[in-house]
């Protein structure tokens, strides 16, 4: 059951960070699964992209030339099917992202392959074992794929160490007639999220609020608290979904990465994967959540189960 195929993820002609992580994860299991490790690059500008994926451990880079760099799930599915049927890899690794999830399960369904998504742990103990979360990130589930000689996995981002530089894999184009894909979409435009005066990526100290805040009126209270303690106010997605704070405040996968943050105070946030994505790397995280089982405590340095409102009041007094 040799062979691994990694599908590179790109956005608008730029490789995404997760691609190197996929390759990194593939490299860790390559010796136990057996090579080769191939990376499939799909897009209009495959040449520069191919250079980016020539990392340590990669044995071959395959390219599928398409008319545009914009993502289309059917094009990707088709390209992966073509590349895979040619080389018959055991493992196909795809990013667990808005694009990756749009075709990974499609490939699996078309092949009747094994499938697991949002995988954060990968191991081989005679057989392939994938670990992912269940029950709102409170429980881990370990999966195997008996009888499957083809397994498609989507891997969680910002979780696996990226592959090192220094590879020199040959590039081989795959020619694929993509002209007549029925049902393909046409890209119109991208819209960058509107900024609203704050920049989560630059903030060193973030006070982030989640659904525990309960209603819009309470936002003010935490706004005031953030100001008082000198923090930038961040939040989880439901707060933005409800229209209580502008998108620019959202921390996480579909929001902003707290890249420069040194201290992160998370109140009333459960710690869903997509939120953790944006902040789990912060050196000191303080989590305030009444549910002792909340996964946020898994990444926090300090935790407390006191009520966030009582705490806010008390904290406010301390900084008076």
């Amino acid at each position: 059951m040799p062979g691994i195929l990694v599908v590179a993820e790109q956005h608008n002609g730029q490789l995404c960070d997760v691609t190197a992580e996929l390759i990194g994860a593939a490299v860790t299991v390559k010796s136990r699964i057996g090579g080769p490790l191939r990376v499939l690059v799909i897009g209009a500008s495959v040449n520069p992209l191919s250079k980016g994926v020539a990392l340590a451990g990669v044995d071959e880079i395959q390219t599928v030339q398409t008319a545009s760099d914009h993502f289309d799930p059917l094009v990707y599915e088709q390209a992966v099917m073509a590349a895979a049927s040619q080389d018959k890899p055991f493992l196909i690794l795809i990013a667990h992202t808005a694009n990756g999830t749009a075709f990974a399960a499609g490939v699996a369904a078309r092949l009747g392959a094994g499938l697991a998504s949002d995988v954060f742990g990968l191991d081989v103990e005679g057989e392939l074992i994938a670990t992912r979360s269940a029950y709102r990130n409170k429980v881990a589930m370990e999966l195997d794929f008996p009888g499957k000689d083809i397994v498609v996995l989507t891997l969680r981002g910002a979780t696996f160490a990226p592959a090192e530089q220094g590879g020199s894999a040959p590039v081989s184009p795959i020619s694929l007639h993509l002209g007549a894909i029925k049902g393909a979409s046409s890209h119109i435009e991208y819209q960058e999220p509107t900024s609203s005066g704050i920049d989560i990526t630059k903030a060193e100290f973030i006070l982030s609020v989640g659904r525990g805040i309960q209603n819009k009126d309470n936002v003010q209270r935490f706004e005031a608290l953030a100001e008082r303690i000198g923090a930038v106010l961040g939040c989880s997605r439901p707060i933005v979904d409800s229209g209580w704070l502008p998108k620019a405040h959202q921390v996480g996968q579909s929001g902003k990465l707290a890249s420069n943050c040194q201290l992160y105070l998370a109140v009333g946030i459960s710690g869903a994967t997509q939120h953790l994505f944006g902040m789990k790397h912060v050196p000191v995280i303080i989590a305030v959540n009444t549910d002792l089982g909340a996964p946020i405590f898994d990444v926090a340095t300090f935790g407390t189960t006191v009520d966030m409102f009582e705490l806010a009041d008390a904290l406010q007094r301390h900084f008076n």
Partner: peptide, 25 residues
Amino acid sequence: GYRVRRMYVPVRQRAAMLEGTAEQV
């Protein structure tokens, strides 16, 4: 697409818990 081998609660509470009343915390 898969078989569940096992489920478990990951070793929890890597955070140091701050105890006490809201005031103390």
